[in-house]
């Protein structure tokens, strides 16, 4: 078992998401993250699907995805030749001035933006590789995370 990122170029039709996710459901594979958005070609969308799967499961699901009529291209993105990004929004407790200063310093060192601030919480925004986001989240847990949102992975292959 390993984390796999699959990038799909699909026709932007109603039902295409169900059709695509059905391929994973049939094999009992859980989708851990999924992003869908328009792309450079009109009428087409790009999906980035992250799953936990073995090499052979990945191979089978990749071929079955290719068989879908509305799927134009399937790319299995290898970690080292792709730029992988995730966006995270979180609301962190800042009960006192010290906490507030510390959160802001840490945010700065991670390159996170302060999206909003209120009297006893700060909303932080960070776009980065998923592992760095994980680490940032771990850090922020010390202060208390009220809410956490992540968009899920999107990725692009290098040339």
């Amino acid at each position: 078992m390993q984390t796999r990122v699959i990038s799909l170029l699909v026709e932007d039709n109603p039902g295409v998401l169900t059709r695509m996710s059905g391929m994973f459901t049939m094999r009992g594979i859980n989708i851990s993250s999924l992003t869908v958005s328009p792309c450079e070609k009109p009428g087409l969308s790009r999906m980035t699907v992250t799953i936990e799967a073995s090499e052979s499961e990945l191979e089978k699901v990749r071929k079955q995805l290719s068989n879908l009529i509305e799927v134009i291209k399937v790319v299995d993105l290898k970690e080292h030749d792709a730029i992988i990004r995730d966006l995270c929004l979180m609301k962190v407790h800042t009960k006192n001035v010290e906490a507030r200063t510390e959160v802001m310093q840490l945010a700065e060192s991670y390159g996170a933006k302060i999206a909003d601030a209120s009297f006893n919480s700060i909303i932080l925004e960070l776009t980065d590789e998923p592992e760095r986001i994980e680490r940032f989240i771990e850090l922020m847990k010390h202060f208390g995370i009220k809410q956490l949102f992540r968009t899920g992975i999107t990725a692009i292959a290098r040339d």
Binding site: K60, K63, Q64, S66, N67
Partner: peptide, 8 residues
Amino acid sequence: VDAAEINK
């Protein structure tokens, strides 16, 4: 003719 059958 179906690549998904190979090695399945």
